[in-house]
Design a protein around this nucleic acid. Structure first.
Lengths: 163, 163
DNA sequence: CTTGAAAGGACTTGCGC
DNA sequence: GCGCAAGTCCTTTCAAG
């Protein structure tokens, strides 16, 4: 389906992650390509699903939701959050990941206040054991997707027990 | 600094999170406003920092980084990841959050393969205890920031021990 | 892939409500 | 604060080399 991405594709991806509203002309200038050439590449990246869309980046703090937390759920049998509720029931839950290990899922929640967070935890707690971690500060998130480094291919194998 | 956001602002925010490349004309049609009116509102949202930017939404799976994990770090004294390394040392780390509780930070990492993940864990492990959770599937993430619900203001107080 | 041209659309400004 | 309308600029998209 998706052909290998070359260096120019990755430069385009990097630029569009920094500014998703660049015109083909502006984008072409930054990657040393003519407007029609970048337009064709971008079209292919969109078609292959590498570029899933273009979004405004909303700052939750400025938007009035300064508090964030991680919640590991270990759902009780028959009460699993994923099977007994819908997304609309918990607008505060902005991410849901199914996990390996002892927890069944990891949630990321955003709330307006501590009181709001308290209420949310009580509602979530009805579905099983929780392990919560309040975020004190976010160093960064949404870091740009980058081309695989050389380390990704030449992985250092651990010594011992090797065949 | 930031005036209260009204309903129209939230509609604009919702539309731009769905499609960050909408023209003022298109955006105005969707929120029942003229192009100059939306342009002025968007300009203010950008100035106040609510709209932090516009980014292409890159699908990590399609981009060749199908594996993701959460890593809780409990850094050893003097070896804290945040103080002894720089972001460029770990391009696989796409999020860093400082946490309350027993862990000092929560990382989100993205890698190309299990071998890559193994190597990364070994490098991270040198900075302290780790608690890792591999993501099996992501239900959703990057859910749109939404206006505060009524529940956010009228929070149910728990019974008992109340003053 | 690049260049060049033509067509279409977007952004802005000013004015009136 | 919003809408309407006009002018200017830019962008996009063809075609040809």
């Amino acid at each position: 389906m998706s052909r290998e991405l070359d260096q120019t594709d990755w430069r385009i991806i990097a630029e569009l992650q920094e500014d998703g509203r660049l015109s083909f002309k502006q984008l072409g200038t930054r990657v040393n390509l003519s407007p029609p050439a970048v337009a064709e590449r971008v079209r292919r990246l969109e078609e292959s699903g590498v570029i899933a869309g273009y979004r405004a980046d909303i700052d939750p703090v400025a938007a009035g939701q300064p508090l964030s937390a991680f919640v590991q759920m270990r759902c009780a049998t028959g009460r699993c959050l994923l099977k007994t509720t819908r997304a609309d029931d918990f607008p505060e839950v902005v991410e849901i990941h199914k996990l390996s290990g002892s927890s069944c899922s990891m949630l990321r929640v955003r709330v307006t206040s501590m009181a709001h967070l308290e209420g949310l935890f009580e509602r979530l707690g009805e579905h099983g054991e929780m392990n919560t971690h309040i975020v004190l500060a976010t160093e960064y998130e949404g870091r740009a997707v980058q081309p695989p480094t050389e380390e990704a291919r030449t992985v250092t194998r651990s010594a011992g027990w090797s065949a």
